[in-house]
Design a binder for these strands. Structure first.
Length: 282
DNA sequence: GAACAGGTGAAGT
DNA sequence: ACTTCACCTGTT
């Protein structure tokens, strides 16, 4: 990977598997929006950014220092997705999905944001999840200026913990609102400590997350995968379940080891695209 | 208007 | 251990 800085932005070349559209629209995150010029604008890690692809170049707003401190880890640029994808493709059942998902990367989001986002996700469509998250941020996040506009950070757990259910009504998040409040309180009072969970097994971290109200196996695995860098976590939602059931034969995600979560994202993206359905029609 | 949506947890077999 | 249901809200 080659990194150059110019005009207040960073260009990288020589990165395989970086398709902004797939990364931001494969359902793992909810705060990046496509702009009229084809770039994506978002806020993550308390920073706003614009990201675009031009041919084999990826452009990031901001300087090299910010890129190295924030966006390099956030976009998981250390991982060679080309070879991960090749390994996953060795399972013939994964071949089509892995090829279709070329360009996806698993973002390393903040664990608290991932926890909230996937608590909101239950029984909701993606547009609605985005709406709820955006309202949470614009109402309770911190304003920051970016390219002559105001955008909002994701509010910290400490901020949410001091809110009431009434304060959250503006989100229209229904029965999920109390889940958010108790999660915020758990993070704030230390009974859920993400830093400490970095040092325990995935299974133990999963148990800790699932002890929160409203967090079951699926949401816990989403937090592990999208917010805690646990690529061995394999969230099973209705789409992935459908794909697995169609295999008829037993499908064991643990066979993918540390790549299970990435395989999951290929399956999810492919299944939602409808590509898998066509294959089976007949 | 009923049914459903990236789930969870309690209560019923 | 497996199945059923309610849960807010918005959309089809």
């Amino acid at each position: 990977m080659r990194v150059t800085e110019a005009d207040g932005r960073v260009e990288i070349t020589g990165v395989s598997d970086f398709d902004p559209e797939k990364i931001f629209e494969c359902g793992q995150c909810f705060r990046w929006r496509r702009q009229a010029d084809g770039s994506f604008l978002g806020v993550a890690m308390e920073k706003a950014a614009r990201v675009r692809r031009e041919g084999d170049k990826i452009l990031f707003s901001g300087g090299r220092a910010e890129f190295e401190a924030v966006w390099f880890p956030y976009f998981d640029l250390e991982r060679d997705y080309g070879s991960v994808r090749w390994e996953i493709s060795q399972d013939p059942r994964m071949h089509a999905a892995a090829e279709y998902g070329a360009g996806i990367r698993i973002l390393r989001q903040e664990p608290w944001e991932a926890l909230c986002s996937f608590l909101f996700s239950q029984c909701n469509h993606i547009p609605r999840i985005r709406q709820i998250v955006e309202t949470l941020c614009s109402t309770y996040g911190e304003p920051i200026e970016f390219e002559n506009r105001i955008v909002y950070t994701f509010p910290k757990a400490e901020r949410v913990a001091e809110l009431s259910l009434g304060d959250l009504e503006v989100l229209r998040s229904g029965y999920r609102a109390p889940y958010i409040l108790s999660a915020a309180r758990a993070v704030t009072d230390g009974s859920l400590n993400f830093e400490a969970l970095a040092g325990v097994s995935t299974e133990e971290a999963r148990r800790a997350l699932a002890s929160l109200p409203g967090v079951g196996r699926k949401v816990a695995d989403c937090v592990l995968l999208f917010g805690m860098g646990r690529t061995d976590a394999f969230p099973v939602d209705v789409w992935v379940r459908r794909a697995m059931e169609r295999q008829g034969d037993r499908f064991d995600p643990s066979a993918f080891g540390e790549n299970a979560g990435i395989a999951q994202q290929y399956i999810f993206f492919y299944e939602r695209s409808g590509g898998a359905g066509k294959e089976c029609a007949g």
